[in-house]
Design a protein around this nucleic acid. Structure first.
Lengths: 343, 343
DNA sequence: TTGAAAGCGCTAACAA
DNA sequence: TTGTTAGCGCTTTCAA
């Protein structure tokens, strides 16, 4: 065995890890035979296979992906960049991607951009240096520089969530403009006429801004415009929705509907209305976006539109896998999901 | 330039990426000078620096971390494994880790175990093959095999969230047994006497099971035991909390308090109670765990205990960074956070 | 079925 | 300040 380590904290952090060469030596075969035996082995004799396997087990051999990937000139990495982990939406997308990659040799590597274009660029540049086999990024609104980086990487790029724009390669998601418009149409159809909008950080959350624009466009077609709006610079949260709604109500605009940037905000809004003793949905109907699971459990129902987040993640993973395998016809580049409006 | 690619989907996925050697050639210096210039350079003449930089920019050079890490015998990777991304708790931890690593050269790589020990083993084994500089994993209850893998990896291991057990190296979190006991003590102090428990997937969510055990232990000290319990095999959710609570209420146990496995379940429970017209907290007080932000916004308050999730993540990142840098005295291995009970 | 040689792209160590 | 040599641990290619 190797010489003993110097007794660092807890376990020994200095022990050299066994290499393939040592495994081979112990098994009495060459490096190559050991290499072949250790990965599903095509042409290896049963004896060699058994000996290599037990040698590896005895030594606690862990293969070095760095060396493997460098040598093989390809990695099993898929880079994934999402803007945030502070609300359940992107974790669900990530979960879908993770599930979609399962069963394949590909492994996801995640990064968070915090809705900051500069940080997104840094995160993506960093990931690309690991030579991933594909990239999955959120949205279509990267900076020109970031876009060039992705386009020049020579790997398939999947852009998630947003369909309102031109993708680098592949695009999986929904049109947020259409989603906003569809919600407006449904609410108008339900007889609502006096609308307010409550949102947050629209400069950062571009997709929420696109929904708002679609919403207002559709209202305009009926000659209606927003009666009021409350927009905070902070990120969305239930508490923020509650606060903004409370002050909006206090201003007595005679509203009959409030469109929120998402379900979290809308739930907060609902709680504010409940505390004020306002009849929901009789007097005012809050409407959100995402179709989060908890909306169905709320004591009073609000309107929302369902975005199939896990499925978008799964699809993105599938698309990436197909593209890596070179199985793309060149026509199927856009995967459109329709948000389902729930009143 | 290279020969044109074959017009694949969108961008050209066949273009060879420029290497350091090509950058050096273009700049008219050696590989080594280029290498030194590209990473903050100690001793490189200003001219060389400028020429290498512009050559790299012109070529769109992206450095190959695979080669770099293999050659340098170290990576800037920190492996992170969490059980789930389906509720906001672990995304927040992940967010904290990500923030804690910012500013350092280290980069987090995330994996999801789905609360499955076999999958956790596979995910960790996979990560270790990338030769991370540290590992951050959730909980203390890995299988013996997984634990051996971590202990033998020769890198610092930080175990997150749970303090009830023996860590491999470092431990950052809270005692869930104590948290359950503290909540029981607080509820008893508030005069509650007839308790039910509502939970889910306790075989998988070991920390929830530890809270329940601590809770019951404290009740027992006052000669009290649970009047009823409802435990489903599914994972926790607001809807599940609502469903289980509804059936529990229908059984008329004369409860005055329900302890839930977490805040999601408790919020669902609250909604069930509200729909039944039961006075909260007058008749029945629901109590959860986590101290999620939305609890404060609920129309009626429930009890909870706050677990500092982001801070645990940040601390874990700090501990990992210090350990990587070799700045651990060997005594500061446990970082204990106290859950704050909020009635 | 097995092995030897070459090399993936980079950095460490040394020399100039 | 710069360059040369060797080699990280593995796979690819080719030969046996």
């Amino acid at each position: 065995m190797t010489t003993a380590g110097e007794g660092m904290t807890g376990s020994d952090h200095a022990m050299a890890k066994p290499t393939l060469e040592e495994v081979a030596a112990r098994a009495g075969v060459s490096k190559m035979t050991a290499s072949r035996a250790l990965r599903g082995a095509a042409d290896v004799s049963p004896e060699s296979l058994a000996r290599v396997r037990s040698a590896a087990a005895e030594l606690g051999y862990v293969r070095n992906q760095l060396a493997l990937s460098l040598s093989a000139q390809r990695t099993n990495l898929v880079g994934v960049v999402v803007p945030s982990m502070s609300n359940i939406v992107f974790p669900e997308v990530v979960s879908g991607i993770s599930a979609g990659l399962e069963g394949s040799p590909m492994q996801a590597v995640f990064g968070i951009s915090d809705y900051d274009p500069a940080r997104e660029h840094a995160v993506i540049a960093n990931m690309l240096s690991w030579q991933p086999s594909a990239m999955i990024v959120t949205g279509l609104d990267q900076t020109a520089e970031t876009r060039a980086l992705l386009a020049g990487a020579g790997i398939p790029v999947v852009q998630l969530m947003d369909l309102d724009g031109e993708p680098v390669d592949f695009n999986v998601g929904l049109s947020h403009g259409d989603a906003g418009a569809a919600m407006a149409r449904a609410l108008l159809g339900a007889g609502r006429r006096r609308f307010a909008y409550v949102g947050s950080a629209l400069d950062k959350d571009i997709r929420a801004a696109k929904r708002k624009a679609g919403f207002e466009r559709m209202l305009a077609e009926s000659g209606i415009s927003l009666v009021a709006e409350a927009i905070a610079p902070d990120f969305s949260s239930i508490s923020l929705g509650k606060t903004l709604t409370t002050s909006l109500i206090d201003a007595r605009h005679g509203l009959d509907c409030i469109y929120y940037s998402n379900d979290d905000m809308a739930a907060g809004g609902l709680f504010a209305l409940m505390e004020k003793g306002i009849d929901v949905p009789g007097s005012i109907l809050p409407a959100g976006f995402n179709g989060l699971d908890f909306v169905a459990a709320l004591p009073v129902h609000i309107a929302t539109s369902r975005s199939p987040r896990r499925q978008i993640g799964r699809t993105a993973a599938d698309v990436a896998l197909k593209a890596i395998a070179g199985e793309t016809s060149g026509t199927d580049r856009i995967y459109r999901f329709e948000p389902e409006v729930l009143l």
